[in-house]
């Protein structure tokens, strides 16, 4: 009897903490999302149903946020992972400068994202007084200038994706360089003695060996990109709706506190929709990446 209680006793603080700060809010949000006409002042509601969902799904702001989020996710996750892999491969093949460059590449990661955002804004902005650095470059190359911060949608999306990729890059490069470094050198030696081309070595040894790390990066990348918000604020300011660059999390935040504020039911419904989307994508990801297990256990 005593033996059965003991482990739970050890777990109690963690269970309590998770229960109060994670499970309870999730359940609460779920309940909120079905309460119609909730009034935060009186903490009362008219009835239950799916109206909140249908409101959110018909809200032009939400649809725009959904579209923005999906574009960011679909562009930045594969691109950042792919570029990070190229950089990591490059770094791994030049041993001597590896350590130095690892620090350099990691710098953006330890730098505050808001500060990085500010720099990006200054680089890409075009004001009546100055064209900004990027536009000066475009000018020099004989291309027409464009305001990336307050201009056409594609330009803003370009900056947004560029920035997102930039910010996540160091972490991915670091993870991938260490994954590549941890592959047993004997595999490479054996392959080289057998006259294997570098290209085939990459495809048949390096890639399968580091694939668990790649799927880890893709999965966390998807989750992170779906939850993007602060990056957008860093570049376009807090009024993301008028900039047309809002994201789902930004929409949720606006619904809770923004100018249109005080609609926790709508916010909850949007949060549950986001949760469902992320859950679906992650499940698909896990199912796909299960095929590349390095431990050699065949997938069933």
């Amino acid at each position: 009897m005593k033996e059965k209680i003991k482990p739970w006793l050890y777990l109690l603080p963690a269970v309590l903490f998770l229960g109060v700060f994670m499970v309870y809010p999730i359940v609460d949000v779920f309940i909120y999302s079905f309460e119609e006409g909730y009034n935060s002042a009186s903490q009362s509601f008219f009835g239950t149903g799916t109206f909140n969902y249908s409101y959110v799904l018909h809200d032009a702001y939400f649809l725009r946020a959904l579209k923005n989020t999906f574009i960011i996710v679909i562009i930045t996750v594969p691109l950042s992972t792919g570029i990070a892999l190229l950089i990591a491969l490059g770094l791994s093949s030049v041993k001597k400068i590896k350590e130095l460059y690892q620090t350099v590449f990691f710098l953006p990661y330890v730098t505050n994202t808001l500060a990085v955002g500010l720099v990006f804004m200054l680089l890409f902005r075009k004001t009546p007084y100055t064209d900004g650095f990027v536009n000066m470059l475009l000018n020099a190359l004989g291309m027409s200038t464009v305001d990336f911060i307050d201009g056409p949608y594609w330009a803003k999306m370009f900056v947004m994706c560029f920035y997102t990729i930039w910010v996540v890059m160091p972490f991915k490069v670091l993870i991938l360089t260490s994954a590549i470094a941890s592959v047993n050198q004997d595999y490479y030696k054996a392959a080289r003695v057998d006259g294997t081309s570098e290209f085939r070595i990459f495809g048949t040894i390096t890639l399968p060996m580091i694939s668990p790390m790649i799927s880890y990066l893709v999965i966390t990348g998807f989750i992170g990109a779906f939850k993007a918000y602060s990056d957008e604020v860093a570049i376009f300011g807090t009024d993301l709706n008028s900039a047309g660059m809002n994201t789902i999390v930004g929409y949720i935040y606006d619904m809770l506190y923004g100018d249109s504020g005080g609609y926790p039911s709508y916010a909850s419904a949007a949060a549950i929709i986001l949760f469902a989307v992320v859950l679906t994508i992650t499940t698909i990801n896990l199912m796909v990446s299960g095929g590349f297990s390095v431990t050699g256990k065949a997938k069933k």
């Binding site: 047993n184 004997d186 030696k189 080289r192 003695v193 048949t204 060996m209």
Partner: peptide
């Protein structure tokens, strides 16, 4: 290069590719 020497080699760790 190793490719053009065409020798067979067995490593101490065997170096069998675990995913194949």
């Amino acid at each position: 290069s190793p490719r053009d020497r065409g020798v067979g080699m067995v490593f101490q760790s065997y170096a069998l590719y675990p995913h194949l």
